[in-house]
Amino acid sequence: MNYPPAIIAEAAVNGLLTGSVYALVALGLTLVYGVLHIINFAHGVLLTCAMFAVWGLVTFTGISPYAAILPLAAVFFGLGYLLQRYLIGPASHGDDGNILLITLGLSIAIENALLAAFHGDTRNIPGDFGFEVAPVGPMMISQPKMIAFAASLIVALLLWLLLARTDTGRAIRAVAKEKLGAGLMGVSVGHIFGITFGLGCACLAVAACLLIPSFYVNPRVGNAFVLVAFTIVVLGGMGSVPGALCGGLFIGMVESLGGLFLGDSLGQLGIFVIFILVLLFRPAGLFGARA
């Protein structure tokens, strides 16, 4: 298979841009893992919910998906907080294995509730948002994807500032390192868990707003992202913010180039193979400290 370099370059850049949104989804996941030490299996279905929410807002009120970013992030922050504090936390009796199963149960229930409500149809937002392209050198690059790339980097930066520079961020880091000690110092661990989970969900809300102009939504759309996000998180090292960012960009490129050379269905295979190999040979990830 001989492709001209311009096509390969375009696929690589496209992959990089898509990868930035993957990184955003993975950022939420890695944050929750880093602090709560749990794998949130409902992450994908929560992304689906967020995408349906943006789709509904844009279709019925006619606002731009980018205007929905802030309000939706706030709503999802609240939702995530309540979900963790009043459902996942109490129901799991403090056992990590239980949390995995509870989030699995939630994801099955929510996905199928969406399926019952919206059927399996694939929907797009009205208008021709997704088709605007801009020339970059010899390549034609989709505008929504460039906006998504910039916005994802901004969110990652904000998240890093929040963790590094604010009191809440300090409390989150304290709980991540030493839950019991932080509790004794007067940090409310349940509250911080809720905030962290809320931040993870807010990342999803932003990702949904950035995805919807160039993507579609159906009740299963989140599944496509969830294993990709898991792969990114293990690749970047569980709990590592820069790891999630680099991992996301890398996986986006692998998927795009793999799709170009092997076809779409086998291109997906590459992601799972990377996931398995990293877990088998380097479970701490490429950026994580050796456990």
Binding site: G105, I108, A109, E111, L115
Partner: peptide, 9 residues
């Protein structure tokens, strides 16, 4: 399946 999921929780 909605019932199954809720039942698991």
């Amino acid at each position: 399946l909605v019932t199954f999921g809720l039942l698991l929780v």
